[in-house]
Amino acid sequence: MKRAIGALVTVLIGAAIFVAIGIGFHAQKYQSVAPTTKAVDTGTTQMVNGKSLKVYTLNLYSYPDSTGTFDASTGAPAGTKPVAIHKNGNPGWPAYGPSNVFQIPAHALVKVHWEQRDSGGSLNNSWFAKPTGTVGPVTLNGKEIPASGIDPSQVGHTFTVRAEPGVDPHFFLNVAAPLNPGNPTDTSTPQVMEFSFVSGNKGLYEWNCEFPCGNGIGGFGAVMSAYGFMSGYIHVV
């Protein structure tokens, strides 16, 4: 009996240590500034095929420096209500805002308004300059871009989304935004991309950027491999 208690205590102490370490690792996960950003309900629309879909809008920002601040209401850098772009910002590392975790409803038309403020360059695979998986026109600063997409050597970031394994049907979304011309600073006017897509089935989706804005082999080191800057989750509920 005494030994059984001893054994039990050992197991409990061991489990407690494991849980403590686990909580430490869990805490490491939330590196984004804000809690999950939810898409806003903005009515319904009639699709070409006659179906009516709920419409949601989602704002997306990409900043050249994750150590900066932005205005939570407009998305512009360092506004009146400055919020850190990233909790663990790193000088020279770009980041997405207002969060890296989004929530959208399943089977809805999601309109994305994306303000891109970062510099850029050439893609590893120029195929990603072309929008895939969008519905309707894709506009850049209000003008529709050609089906072949933007110039693959002038890309700022991409917003590339995939469903978690096993979500049916196959879901793939990719839109590239051009780089901010000139010498981008936080006050320059952003490149505004607008596009829509129809969300898929429920599940945990993943988004990341396919522009090599990191360093090392393929430009996918550092910021590209650090969770929460150029990557994140989308909860489709």
Partner: peptide
């Protein structure tokens, strides 16, 4: 059928799959 990536390739390896 499924297409998966069978070689650990970094951050989003788990999502490098398609059908």
């Amino acid at each position: 059928f499924d297409v998966r990536c069978s070689q650990l390739c970094g951050l989003e390896h788990a999502y490098m799959q398609t059908t």
